[in-house]
Amino acid sequence: MSTNFPEIQGGGSLILAWQIKGKEVLVVGGGEVAAGRIVNLLNADAKVTVVCPRDGLNEEVAYRVDQGQVKHVDRMFLPLDLEPEKNVAMILTAIDDPDASTRIWKYCKRLKVPANIADVPSECDFYFGSVHRDGPLQIMVSTNGNGPRMAAAIRRQIGEMLPKGTGDSIQKVGQLRRKLRKIAPGKSTRDISKRMGWMSEVCDKWSTEEFNNIDDADMEDLVQYYESGIVPSFEEIRLGQRGDVVWEFDGSFGWM
């Protein structure tokens, strides 16, 4: 029997992309930590409610309240904030009161509401990592609570290593996938596998810069190759399929 399988490394977290769009999220507290959490949540299109006395809001959180970006409950947290009819999907606490935070965490456990208690890993159902963001691209670095500052440094290093325009190229890949699904809408396992395989070959063959340079006409030309299973190069699409291209020869080779 083969034993060539991945080695198990315990002690990690299951890193997921949590789809929180349109869901209710409660943030308890209004200081600097809460402000950072709110940015992450709004970037994920969550519906955010901040529970904190008005005089406890820092400048950034107060701005988001005043701009209507988040709802505001002007008082301390109460159990009624997690009543079932409010459909709270998760709660984040960022307050300077460990006892109150623990009480909120225990209440969340009884109600089975996922919670993140700032700076108390043992009372967190999930963690926030250091995230590099470039359009649709998100890369999270997590140290599982051991070294947040190091996570931030590593995240910056990763961001600097990525080719310029990576986010834009990923955006183009998404557009290409949608065009492909229009001409090949099959939903069987075989259809899905074929689409994924062809797209994988395109992504392996084309560079970030080439994806950045393609337009809608290029994409339309490219997806026409799908049924044949062929993956043309960028040059074949841009030059070989355009009737408006003027070919110039420098005399370095002759006609056979």
Rank of each mutant, 00 (worst) to 15 (best):
Q67A: 15
R242F: 10
R181C: 13
C124N: 07
K182T: 11
Y107Q: 10
A35Y: 00
E235T: 13
K106W: 06
I230T: 14
R103Y: 07
M150G: 11
E85G: 05
I192T: 15
M199E: 12
M219A: 06
Q19L: 10
M161C: 15
S101A: 15
V48N: 03
I139E: 04
E210G: 04
S228L: 06
I91Y: 00
G22P: 04
N43Y: 04
N212F: 06
T93A: 00
N116T: 01
P232I: 00
E60W: 04
N213E: 15
S2A: 13
L14E: 04
D125L: 02
A217F: 08
L42W: 07
E60L: 13
L14I: 13
G129F: 02
F211P: 00
E123R: 15
N213V: 01
A89N: 01
W206P: 10
A151M: 01
N144F: 10
G147Q: 05
L80H: 12
I104P: 00
H72P: 07
D250V: 02
M161V: 01
G159F: 00
Y63D: 14
A151C: 05
I158E: 08
V33L: 05
R195F: 02
T49E: 08
E123T: 04
R177I: 04
S233I: 02
G197T: 14
N146R: 14
G56H: 09
V39N: 11
V39I: 13
Y225E: 11
E60Q: 14
W198S: 06
R149M: 12
G31C: 00
L42A: 07
D216M: 09
V33F: 01
I170R: 09
S101T: 10
N43T: 06
D97Y: 00
K205Q: 13
Y63W: 09
G254F: 11
Q171I: 05
L16G: 04
K112E: 15
L239P: 00
G22I: 05
M1N: 12
A217Y: 12
S13R: 07
K109T: 12
N40E: 09
G243A: 09
A35F: 00
F128V: 08
G251L: 08
S200D: 13
P121Y: 09
D244R: 02
S228A: 14
G56N: 09
I237C: 05
K21G: 13
Q138D: 12
L26F: 01
Q175N: 12
G229E: 09
N43W: 03
L41K: 06
